[in-house]
């Protein structure tokens, strides 16, 4: 195998497409998953406004979506993707299934982050006459922020992994390159380089996320 400028260009394009898919899907995933996670945490039987029926419904929907393997979800959602984006292949199209797969996952992580917040602090805010909205905003999200940032980091890594899987159906990005060159054309070298780049990307995202979390944590004396 020769590494010529054409391949470098291809890989750079792959990195760009992957980052584009991952970042946009994470943002959209949080747009859906954050409210979902908040609703789960608030409506739980130990939440600030227990609503058992609502919790049960959200819980079931989240579990169903979470238990569908991503590759299957990708194929199941093709008609939806077509309707929304106009085509079912390429990196923009892949954002649709990525977002749908990420949202319940993110919702669960947000839920668990918010449930870690000390009950005593929530009670203190209630004793001051805080509304539910104020408690969510100032107490739950404020106190759980480190855990939430760690959650974003984990989400980015997971979504990056999913995005590579989307290569199987022409999803664009690094996964697409790995499948097309590595699998269909038997060019193991390119496949290995692609995998290495994915690993490095995950490491970098992880490192940045953890650094931010540590820097913002006020519980470290």
């Amino acid at each position: 195998m020769q590494i010529d400028s054409q391949i470098v260009g291809l890989l750079l394009e792959g990195i760009r497409d992957t980052l584009y898919m991952v970042l946009v899907s994470t943002i959209l995933g949080y747009a859906l998953g954050l409210p979902l996670g908040i609703m789960l945490a608030v409506s739980d039987k130990n939440g600030i406004r227990p609503r058992p029926a609502l919790y049960r419904i959200l819980d079931i929907i989240t579990n169903i979506l979470r238990s569908i393997p991503f590759l299957i979800l990708l194929i199941l959602l093709i008609p939806v993707t077509r309707a929304l984006v106009g085509k079912s292949y390429g990196s923009t199209a892949t954002i649709v299934p990525l977002t749908i797969a990420a949202a319940p996952f993110i919702g669960r992580m947000v839920e668990s982050s918010l449930k870690e917040v000390d009950q005593g602090v929530i009670e203190a805010a209630q004793s001051m006459g805080a509304s539910d909205g104020t408690i969510v905003w100032k107490v739950l999200l404020g106190e759980a922020r480190i855990s939430l940032i760690v959650g974003v980091t984990i989400s980015l890594g997971t979504i990056l992994g999913y995005s590579a899987m989307a290569g199987v159906v022409g999803g664009g990005g690094l996964g697409d390159i790995a499948i097309r060159y590595g699998y269909y054309r038997w060019e193991t070298g390119i496949m290995l380089i692609t995998v290495a780049i994915i690993v490095v990307l995950v490491q970098i995202l992880q490192w940045i996320g953890m650094r931010i979390a540590k820097k913002l944590d006020r519980r470290i004396p």
């Binding site: 005593g120 009670e123 203190a124 004793s127 480190i146 006020r218």
Partner: peptide, 27 residues
């Protein structure tokens, strides 16, 4: 009605000044 707790129940991610601000923010 103010309440004082055994385990203080301060917001750990806020500094002392902003902790004292909380009831006023609520108001």
């Amino acid at each position: 009605i103010g309440m004082i707790f055994q385990h203080f129940n301060l917001l750990m991610q806020r500094n002392v000044l902003d902790n004292v601000c909380l009831p006023m923010e609520i108001a």
